[in-house]
Design a protein around this nucleic acid. Structure first.
Lengths: 191, 191
DNA sequence: TATTTTTCTTAAACTAGTTTATTTTTTTCT
DNA sequence: AGAAAAAAATAAACTAGTTTAAGAAAAATA
């Protein structure tokens, strides 16, 4: 009958000690137990202030839908795993839904920060790196090398100037030969 | 003539306040100024205890070399950016080198943790997620879909049982049709 | 258990990206 | 400035992965 026992034992496991009454209270006030049916959408692209989810039972997935409507899964979470968009509270590009009927504990980003006194540079650094990497993975999964090149030109024009072409091709995940093809096609177009 | 002025102003910018004398002292004791020539290798795959690098001037890149000897860039860092392998102190899979002659401040992971009191669950969560994502990006850049499937079978056999095939194919970044081809080829092989 | 819906397989024609090799252009070094 | 080395372009034959479509198998539902 303990309200958040799964979550509390999770934290006790992580911290390797019993939680104080104050900590237990904070957890019980922060987390919200939710049940999702199979195929139920938990958040969708365009939503802001998405929450973090800890799966007690079931299976969730986070995914993107590209311009042509195709889905690409980014992450799954099963029992005792976390899932959510770390970009929160910013607008998310992802969808989260339940593959199986699932029981989860969810928490807002704000409360998550309170719980973990997230006020350090290192956290910002990892968080930023993570979000960056995530974006990159999505680009590679969803776009052609040509599109990824155009994006790079748009967002980091200065890098294009400073990098030899073979470093750019390697970043895009293609051969130098293929990037060269892309560039010559591009040059022909712009006349 | 101030010893770590670039780094100190970086932290003052991030924290949005002057640093205390104690903090300045900690920074001056933790960071090590280093100069790398163009093409100089800073760390290589197999090294452990790699450091974190903050670029004052120049351009660095972190990359993997796959089985066939091909390089894939994972990350670049220019002025005022951080680079390093967050998996440290574990053995790294990456190479770090200087694309241009570069001046950097480096710090050990241990000192980085002291500086940012990294003892919260949230940090672990992001760090783990980040490392996971990084591995995934590398897999997608360097392996064929077939190899990625074999890896998934090896590392998460239980997921294969629980996921419909089209979710697996989406995770691997290929079409369900192509995964089906892979599987039938695989079944033929194992007879 | 029969029916409907969802998932998986197969095939064939196609496209994105690779490989290897050769030539041209640009950069670096003395 | 001239020679040597590194980087980029081009071509042609190849392979990994896509698309569309139709049928088979499996799962969900009445």
């Amino acid at each position: 009958m303990e309200k958040c026992s799964t979550i509390i034992s999770y934290y006790e496991h992580i911290y390797n000690r019993k939680l104080t009454d104050w900590e237990r209270k904070l957890i019980e006030e922060s987390f919200q137990r939710q049940v999702f049916k199979k195929k139920e959408i938990i958040f969708r692209s365009g939503d802001s202030n998405t929450r973090h989810y800890f799966v007690e039972k079931g299976l969730l997935r986070m995914y993107v839908i590209d311009a042509s409507g195709k889905e690409f899964n980014i992450l799954f979470a099963r029992e005792n795993q976390w899932i959510g968009d770390l970009s929160t509270p910013a607008t998310t590009a992802f969808f989260l839904d339940a593959i199986e009927k699932s029981v989860v504990y969810s928490i807002s980003d704000e409360n998550m920060n309170l719980l973990t006194n997230n006020f350090s540079t290192f956290v910002r650094y990892i968080k930023k790196s993570y979000i960056f990497l995530q974006r990159r993975l999505v680009s590679i999964l969803t776009n052609t090398a040509e599109e990824n090149y155009e994006e790079l030109v748009r967002i980091h024009p200065e890098l294009i100037q400073r990098l030899p072409q073979y470093h750019i091709s390697s970043y895009l995940g293609v051969t130098p030969v293929f990037l060269s093809k892309i560039l010559s096609k591009r040059a022909r177009k712009k006349e």
